[in-house]
């Protein structure tokens, strides 16, 4: 028999290292032609930090995304970015890049205000142009501004660094472990085959408070990948270790999810902006994974009335529990 159930899982996740300093830094240089180079220590492992950091710099400087070139993760060129871990890079390296761009922008705004004959506060930088607030029809190009810098003997360079405002955990671990937290809720729908113990995850709704989504597709990509990793955690993944020997060190016997196992996933982005984050951003990398497994376990309970507490819930474990429950009836 196939029976369905729904379950919910929630989580919170502190962004950055726990109660420890974990700074990151970046350099920004705006070139004479209006293109931009960002140097950031932050390692992009595919999650898309190069893209997100470039977006932050582009927005800050008022240039288009394509103008920004980023060099990341090269110790000879880039300052420390710290580890790509703890869902910290958008928040911490993001702020570092934001601050570096702000510093590089100082001379740009100064010169633009001189050319536009207005106060610095009135300068609007957008789409590789500048204008006086309210006079959108009278724009000057970034190139013109940069030539202005050149003739005045000025450069547009900036350095930025950021360390979240956390504090050490002291007696009984009291303190401020993180400056900000991400939150999430997943609701899963599963189908349990009561005769074979197989569990199929049909749908997952995944709502994530990420502060501000700098890049929605990237955020969704993290959420969707997290859902499948969470499914593996709940249902299939386990390294079998016997007296220190690993019995299944391969893709054949350590079971991660395939495209065929993918449920329908509905990512929902909630934007409770964080005061300290760049444009309000927090993080999503690890939060994406965390609520999926509890939601699935609770959905299985909803379906068959068995509360599992030891992972993973492979078919044999589920069927065994179903049979035991039938026997005690």
């Amino acid at each position: 028999m196939l029976v369905r159930g729904k379950g919910i899982g929630c989580m919170w996740y502190g962004i950055g290292n726990t109660g420890l300093p974990n700074p990151a830094a970046a350099f920004v240089k705006v070139h004479i032609d209006g293109s931009v180079t960002v140097l950031a220590g932050c390692a992009d492992i595919g999650q898309g930090s190069d893209t997100v950091l470039s977006q932050i710099v582009a927005e800050t400087l008022g240039v288009t995304f394509d103008k920004v070139y980023i060099k990341s993760g090269d110790t000879e060129a880039t300052p420390e970015g710290g580890a790509t871990s703890a869902s910290r890079q958008t928040y911490i390296s993001g702020n570092a890049c934001h601050f570096a761009a702000l510093e590089a922008k100082e001379n740009i705004v100064k010169v633009a205000s001189e050319i536009l004959k207005c106060d610095e506060e009135e300068v609007v930088l957008i789409n590789n142009t500048a204008y006086k607030n309210g006079c959108e029809d009278k724009t000057i190009t970034y190139k013109e501004i940069m030539l202005g810098l050149k003739s005045r003997g000025l450069l547009a360079i900036g350095k930025g660094q950021f360390n979240p405002s956390a504090s050490a955990l002291v007696e009984n671990m009291q303190g401020i472990p993180y400056a900000t937290y991400a939150f999430a809720t997943h609701i899963a729908e599963v189908e349990v085959n009561t005769e074979t113990g197989e569990v199929t995850v049909l749908k997952i709704v995944a709502a994530h408070d990420v502060g501000k989504a700098i890049n929605k597709k990237n955020v969704e990509g993290q959420i969707e990948g997290g859902c499948l990793m969470g499914m593996g955690f709940a249902l299939s993944e386990k390294l079998i270790i016997n007296n220190g020997h690993m019995k299944n060190p391969d893709f054949n016997s350590y079971i991660i999810q395939t495209a065929q196992d993918m449920p329908e996933i509905y990512p929902i982005i909630v934007e409770e902006e964080s005061g300290e984050g760049p444009f309000g951003a927090k993080g999503v990398g690890e939060p994406a994974l965390i609520p999926a497994a509890p939601a699935i376990i609770n959905a299985i309970y909803d379906a068959i009335g068995i509360r599992f507490t030891h992972l993973p819930l492979t078919a044999d474990v589920v069927l065994d529990a179903i049979k035991k429950k039938e026997e005690t009836k």
Binding site: E224, F251, A259, M262, I265
Partner: peptide, 20 residues
Amino acid sequence: EIKTAIEGNLCRCTGYKKIV
């Protein structure tokens, strides 16, 4: 049919959705 075509291509990052 798309899922079947890529069932032998493991991806640990994306959860396959955006690939499909």
